[in-house]
């Protein structure tokens, strides 16, 4: 049993004075978490699976009818849903690729010693710590065609980033890149500093140029951590709701999670939205699984 490996309770501790055993203390820590998980995650997960086969609507009192796979059939043949998926895919690719490039690039720049390195790193991490709603509102101001600083700096006149249907999605993606590139940077930095220095020395002795060293030594050795960053960011980007919802109302920025929200809380089509949520879940799981397979292969070495 797990209790066998636990350290014995310090006999002078307060817990011991109250007559608590190791087991009691373990339970005190673990049970609330388990209860929380069951109530707020596992129960809704299973319950919504049930709803996804019905025509239940949270806004009406009509009797709930079992409709089988009808919801799924409707959703998967609905062209609007597919266009939402295409928008989401575009968004995920642009924003995750951008985050990986910017984040890894920053990490390469930071992976040396210079004055105020700690301060610079901390400042670069700030965007990640902000609330997405606040970030969205601020970037809306930054993008503002009439007096936003972005157009002023780049001399774009009154170019309307967020109301132009072609650029709105990319404008949102840029904001997401700004916010989450630091996360990739953090993981990359950890990966870069874990590459033993003597490997670079060996490569220098072996007459490897800097590009050869980067592609044959740095990249392969950092790739497991890059892969982890990629998994996290892809999952998150796939589920993006807040930034896009706040920044733009264009139909071209209607990500799948926004579609889902509208279906569930504007049209009150609860059963169908449960089905859509399940479709999204399965897709995210599938993508993540592919990455994890690559990650394991990278880690084997």
């Amino acid at each position: 049993m797990a209790t066998a490996v636990m350290n014995r309770l310090d006999p002078r501790s307060r817990a011991a004075a109250r007559g608590w055993s190791d087991l009691t203390i373990r339970n005190v820590f673990i049970i609330p978490t388990i209860v929380f998980l069951i109530v707020f995650n596992i129960f809704p997960l299973i319950y919504s699976l049930g709803y996804s086969f019905t025509d239940f609507s949270a806004a009406s009192n009509e009797p709930v009818q079992f409709v089988g796979l009808q919801n799924y059939r409707d959703l998967l043949t609905d062209e609007n849903i597919w266009s939402n998926f295409v928008i989401t895919a575009k968004y995920v690719i642009v924003s995750v690729a951008g985050q990986m490039l910017v984040g890894f690039g920053l990490a390469l720049l930071l992976n040396r010693s210079f004055a105020f390195k700690g301060l610079v790193t901390t400042l670069l991490l700030l965007p990640m710590m902000m609330s997405a709603a606040v970030v969205g509102l601020f970037w809306r101001l930054l993008y503002s065609p009439s007096w936003g600083p972005i157009n002023y700096i780049f001399g774009l006149g009154d170019f309307a980033w967020l109301s132009d249907p072609d650029t709105a999605l990319y404008a949102v993606a840029i904001t997401d890149i700004w916010m989450w590139a630091p996360f990739v940077m953090l993981l990359s930095l950890a990966g870069l500093s874990a590459v033993p220095k003597h490997l670079y020395e060996a490569a220098a002795i072996d007459r490897a140029g800097s590009w050869y060293t980067f592609t044959r030594i740095t990249l392969p050795l950092v790739s497991p951590l890059l892969m982890i960053a990629l998994i996290f960011r892809t999952m998150e980007a796939f589920k993006t709701f807040d930034i896009a919802y706040i920044m733009s109302t264009q139909p071209t920025t209607e990500l799948i999670s926004i579609r889902l929200y509208k279906q569930a809380f504007q049209q009150w089509d609860t059963g169908k939205s449960c089905a859509l949520a399940y479709i999204v879940l399965i897709m995210v799981l599938a993508i993540t699984n592919m990455y994890v397979k690559y990650l394991n292969r990278a880690k084997e070495r």
Binding site: H198, E201, I205, L221, R301
Partner: peptide
């Protein structure tokens, strides 16, 4: 180092893992 045309054997091998 690369232009000196010498080889170096490290104590901890420094093989590319």
């Amino acid at each position: 180092a690369g232009d000196r045309d010498i080889a170096f054997v490290f104590q901890l091998f420094a093989l590319y893992p």
